[in-house]
Simulated assay, not measured.
Amino acid sequence: MAIQWPLVIFSLLAGAGGALLAFVGLSGVLGLAKKARVPAAVGALVLLVVGGCASVAHLAQPANIMAAAANVFSFSGISVELIMLGVNAIVAVAYVLTARGESANATKIVGIVGIVTGVAMTFVVGNGYVMEAQPNWNTPALPFAYLGSGLATGGALFATLMAALKTDEADFRGIMPWVLGATVVQLVAFLAYGFAIGFAADVLLYWGGAVIVGSVGAIACAAFIAKASTMAYATLVCAVVGGICLRALMWLVGTGFLDAFGTAAVRGVWGV
């Protein structure tokens, strides 16, 4: 099956945006990296919007876009993605607005909501592809692989913002275990997906890109961020490579041509 690059971009950016928002909330709960929170919330909003535009680009025709909008509350896998995209964008805006006010409690509450909605976003962008018609997608391991990818990329991006804004060393020591944990989750989830499909995947994309560079490389770089903040940039690059390779791999192991509206027609959820 041909790689659907607009959907690769959508799921990568939307997942990373959700995870970045989750890290904003986490840093608020931990009382760390205050300087990076609002810029990260703005960054999450940008990623969600750009990712949404990539998804719209895949729909190609105005009629398809209107059909998707009209059936957004069908609660199919695709509609849930769109709903969560909007919810996370609203939470990101709410966080920026409350952070500019005087109520620290309100900001923290919105941040906690962002943790829940952000993590959910990383999962649903993969869950929409789970279907019986695609044997290599029809496994719970696929959305968890997307979740791991989103957490690793979003966590690395939050660390990168911390490095760029030169946050205190104590903040790095407090946040880095969480970033490192996210990269470990990604490795475990990628291996689980490989196992689920019998490792019947392109060797270079899976083992070279997703596992070795994207996951093991990200773990190795993240382990040194607390000592050298510039390693955050390397962690981000590795995580992005891993996320792209995993998504490209998913399309290549699919059977037959499939696009968003082909899926909808099969499921009968959009009436097209």
Rank of each mutant, 00 (worst) to 15 (best):
P177E: 09
S229H: 11
Q134V: 07
L26I: 12
G148N: 04
V38R: 08
G18R: 00
V184I: 15
G268T: 02
R247D: 05
G51F: 09
A222H: 02
L26Y: 07
F224T: 03
A68S: 15
S79P: 06
Y193A: 03
A196I: 02
V119A: 13
L82C: 13
G155N: 01
V119G: 10
S11P: 01
G148T: 05
L97G: 01
V125W: 02
A120D: 00
L48M: 11
P39L: 00
M176T: 07
V29A: 14
A57Q: 11
W270E: 08
T235W: 04
A201V: 12
A67P: 01
A22H: 02
V113E: 06
T263N: 09
T117P: 00
P62W: 01
F224V: 06
Y95L: 15
T153G: 06
K227S: 05
G242A: 14
I65V: 14
G118C: 11
F158S: 06
N64P: 01
G208I: 01
G28A: 12
G101H: 13
L246R: 03
A104I: 10
F75C: 07
G155R: 02
G114K: 03
F190N: 15
L204G: 12
V46L: 09
M121Y: 05
D202E: 13
G111A: 08
V29Y: 10
F224A: 05
G262N: 00
A222L: 01
A33P: 08
G214M: 06
T139G: 08
V38G: 00
A228G: 04
V29Q: 12
A44C: 08
A182E: 05
V91D: 13
T139V: 09
A133G: 14
G242I: 09
V87R: 01
G271S: 05
I197H: 03
V184D: 03
A69W: 10
A226I: 02
V87F: 07
T255L: 05
K227M: 06
A264N: 11
V253D: 03
A248R: 13
E102Q: 15
V50Q: 06
W251S: 14
V253A: 01
Q61F: 12
E132D: 11
G214S: 10
L97A: 12
V269M: 10
L30G: 13
V253S: 00
L20T: 04
T153S: 14
T235Q: 12
S79T: 13
G77E: 05
V56Y: 13
A92N: 13
A67H: 08
V91K: 12
A200L: 11
C221Q: 09
L7W: 07
G242S: 14
Q186V: 02
V179P: 04
W137L: 04
W178S: 10
A22S: 15
I225F: 08
R247P: 01
L48A: 05
N88T: 05
F73W: 13
G25F: 09
A260H: 00
L85V: 10
M231V: 00
V91H: 14
V116P: 13
L47Y: 08
F261Y: 11
F224K: 04
P62N: 02
L252P: 11
K35N: 13
